[in-house]
Design a protein around this nucleic acid. Structure first.
Lengths: 323, 323
DNA sequence: TTGAAAGCGGTACCAA
DNA sequence: TTGGTACCGCTTTCAA
């Protein structure tokens, strides 16, 4: 095959048909004589023809590109989100354009403009701020927008978020199904996430008709050391818990360290809220029930693909519970 | 400003000049009467005009898009690389298209094709295999290729790698400065990285005039469990090492688990090759040899921008030492 | 079902 | 310096 440049007309010439027919044969959306289709495909193969998507994009006004703007892809939460998006988009033949905003609205705005200039089909945005105006500008510039992680009140766009309280409840309920003595290692109560997750922990107990043992509920900070010490304290109880719902990933690593030398069967089951990093712990498998970051990505990607396929559909606000 | 669609001709009409003049005024690469330039800019601003980069790309054959193919962006090493690339490209006005190959050559090939179809200007590739053919196909399809992390012998492209052997030597030398009993937990010898790092470990001993104790050199796989067991074995020696050079980040996490319950002062010092994730271990501080992943990204991005600006320049093989 | 031809929105050559 | 216009490569009417 020649180095690079076979165009549609070259295929047409070789196949002895018009460019229009080649286009139709290759796209397969319009009836074409099967024999001609075969001839066109043969010619295309012979020339190593590949469609120029830029030309196609200009004509059809569909670029096949979807942008993703997150604060920082180096934050493992967003890393997972991005990975989920990428996997889904790849399956649909779309390419992902990655942008880091650093939580900076200027950068975000700049990127939204640039993405629109490139005629991206859409953008999955973890908004830097709750500014409705920015979202509307983006939509006005022709981008299909799907919001993730945070919702922006009033925006008429699709969104995917996560339920802290409900997820915590479900995770806890999973542990309660195995034992009544379930503990919670939670983050600082000045954060809404910690409060919501602790509330979910309580909800599960109420639903199950179980009175939680206050000694099993430990508030600490969102640190590795905090998780470690909390777990140690739980293990030192005369009656240690059978399972522990740990409020975030960092604390989970500390909790894992605390049980590292225990027999896996003897150690409490651990359920972690946030996703653990890719390498995960092997000795004590952790149920990473929730905070479905990967699923957040795949769901957002699914939503944007749906809307591109059907622009007039109802806007949906998906709230993910567990992964 | 109108919702979205102002085109070049609209600006031309409003400014009372030809489309060609508008293009020239906006691009500023050809002399244009300053008064006209001002009028054009005013008209463009009034209409909220933004250049359609797809149309521009078709005509100029420059897309403003650069691809990045890594095995997995969720691996913190590549996460950092990608972040470095993105920061650099953004400064140059380029957009980054992110692709995960999962170390799978099929996926890599598929992506390379897709990127060429989209007329990307170039691709920064962490090759899944050392196949020269694949690289040449990519170059043949019009992509400017910059290799990272691994080199592919014989490929006439720019590349950025890291000094495995030298870095390992330096890291080990740091430990040897404190004690003569230094161990190495290395990866499988079928990988070039493991071989190079083990060689660097030896180099440091030779330089220091120290005969390494063979029992202190353990080959395992690049896994958490492997690192854990190797460290356990080292601790069980009648004379455990004072320091350990661990060959990658995953094994380091296993090694950390093995010493988790030890007093920090009693445990061997650990030096890790790859970067550890953001939350890192707190009890046993790890010296992380500065495997400059972020710099790897920025350097690769710089190289590709240089080549796009000057296609005929000499090919460079950059080898980064530390960050 | 197939072909001719008019764009999509800029860019750049050629002439003035 | 500026304008007219062909053209980048593909898609999609419109006619045949």
């Amino acid at each position: 095959m020649p180095a690079s440049r076979a165009r549609l007309v070259d295929v047409a010439r070789l196949a002895g048909v018009s460019p229009a027919t080649v286009s139709r044969s290759l796209n397969g959306n319009v009836p074409v004589n099967p024999q001609i289709v075969a001839r066109v495909h043969a010619a295309a193969a012979e020339l190593g023809y590949r469609r120029n998507k830029i030309a196609s994009a200009l004509r059809r006004n569909v670029s096949g590109l979807i942008g993703v703007i997150v604060p920082d892809v180096a934050n493992p939460f967003y890393t997972e989100v991005v990975r989920g998006i990428e996997d889904t988009l790849r399956g649909a033949g779309y390419l992902l354009v990655l942008c880091n905003s650093d939580g900076n609205e200027e950068k975000q705005t700049e990127y939204l403009r640039l993405l629109a200039d490139h005629q991206l089909d859409g953008v999955i945005l973890a908004p830097a701020t709750a500014s409705l105006q920015k979202i509307e500008d983006a939509v006005g510039s022709g981008l299909v927008v799907v919001l993730i992680d945070r919702r922006v009140p009033g925006a008429t766009v699709d969104s995917v978020t996560i339920t802290n309280r409900d997820d915590a409840r479900i995770l806890t309920a999973g542990l309660l199904a195995g034992s009544k003595r379930i503990a919670h290692i939670g983050g600082p109560s000045r954060t809404s996430t910690a409060v919501d997750r602790a509330a979910g922990f309580m909800d599960a107990h109420v639903s199950a008709g179980i009175e939680p043992d206050p000694r099993l509920v430990i508030e600490t900070d969102y640190s590795e050391q905090g998780g470690y010490e909390a777990m140690k304290a739980l293990l030192d109880l005369e009656q240690p818990p059978a399972g522990v719902f740990v409020g975030n990933n960092v604390m989970t690593l500390g909790a894992l360290r605390a049980i590292a030398t225990m027999e896996p069967d003897a150690a409490p089951k651990i359920v972690s809220f946030d996703p653990l990093p890719w390498w995960a712990s092997s000795l004590h498998p952790v149920t990473v029930g929730s905070h479905p970051s990967y699923a957040l990505g795949t769901t957002a990607a699914d939503l944007i693909l749906l809307r591109l396929a059907e622009p007039e559909r109802e806007y949906s606000e998906v709230v993910l519970t567990d992964g």
